[in-house]
Nucleic acid binder design. Structure first.
Lengths: 199, 199
DNA sequence: CTTTTTCTGTAGCGGTCACTAAAAATAGTC
DNA sequence: GACTATTTTTAGTGACCGCTACAGAAAAAG
């Protein structure tokens, strides 16, 4: 299963590591947004020339899709990680919001959530659709989880969390400090408990 | 003062109306974002050719600047309008959030706030700077107003409102319905009152 | 009238964009 | 060694970007 050496295929071997290239692409897209980072820059930063780029990823959007997958499978998936630690719905949501407050502030030049804000206003419909699909999938997961305790108000409570996260991501991109996001996350968490207890 | 006919100047008269052109530009930028709408499209939509465009506005960013001014002076300035009706801080903030929930959903193809989301991830630093300046100015106005009742916690409470508005704008751009935003605005308003009463 | 001023249309500038055709290079296989 | 398969390099492509030079057109001023 860990046979990374898989009996080298026929032709000339690839001189770069696809996984590492995707990792670097995640950073670039996160730092600067989908539109701002061009294929030329990706190539030079990843150390590959355009034809190799297109042979490996198909298109710029194709690389972006892989980058999004890598990103959502990482520690940046705040809800997924919060869910792993278990607990009540309110506890998991609180951890989700606090984790976002911890991760979203600028690190290495990248701020906010790549999925939520990496393609906002992008001129590329394909890139926007990819991000939108992941955004909706994340919201659906949160809603289904909330429904385990609050089935009647799952949608409304999920929207509360999703919109709060979107606001935090936008604020982080605009330079909000970790302390600012933490204070908001705590207030949002209190609001969630309060709203969940209503009706 | 209403002398719209101001003793026609010397040269060939302009064949288009600058005010109307700015209005159309507001709609275009709001609908599609700064980067996605090019000078060629602006020209054809506004009925003017490139040289007239540059004589009138200086640059694409110049037109965007005027469009932002027009936008912030309109009913889209949710806090400014809420402030006009007076009342306590909590009342004005509630009206601000509810007004945002009313106007952010898609209308005529445009959703969210032009200032908050019209240039997110734009490749043009000038356009981003213009929007960022207005964003910060708006947050400062809200903070100063909140300080009239809650001087010690004005920053924290202003961040609560600003991040909530940013989230609502992002959600609206992603297709959130008016009812969704209204429910969030009401919850955020309750959270504001609750947080303001703390400590 | 001629002159001056300002705007308009035609045409196109240099630059960047995502992307690709063609051939050389490097491996396994026969 | 000859052949096949794959990736590499070189050198671009056409399309679009924001923007402008230039000359003609339309007004007031002399």
């Amino acid at each position: 299963m860990t046979a990374t050496e898989k009996a080298q295929p026929r032709g000339r071997p690839r001189t770069f590591d696809i996984d590492e290239a995707v990792d670097r692409a995640v950073k670039l897209f996160h730092r600067r947004g989908y539109d701002a980072v061009g294929v030329a820059e990706l190539g030079s930063e990843l150390g590959i020339k355009p034809p190799s780029f297109y042979a490996a990823f198909g298109s710029k959007a194709g690389l972006f899709e892989q980058a999004l997958e890598r990103y959502t499978a990482s520690k940046a998936n705040v809800f997924g990680n919060a869910l792993l630690e278990g607990g009540s719905v309110a506890e998991v949501i609180e951890r989700t919001l606090l984790e976002a407050a911890r991760i979203y502030p600028e690190q290495d030049g990248a701020a906010g959530c790549l999925v939520m804000d990496g393609t906002r206003n992008s001129t590329d419909p394909e890139a926007r659709a990819l991000a939108a699909a992941l955004k909706e999938a994340g919201r659906a997961r949160i809603r289904d989880f909330i429904a385990t305790e609050f089935p009647a108000r799952a949608d409304e409570l999920a929207d509360l969390v999703a919109i709060a996260l979107a606001g935090m991501s936008a604020a982080a991109r605009d330079g909000a400090k970790a302390s600012t996001l933490k204070a908001f996350a705590e207030a949002a968490s209190r609001a969630f408990r309060h709203e969940a207890a209503r009706a």
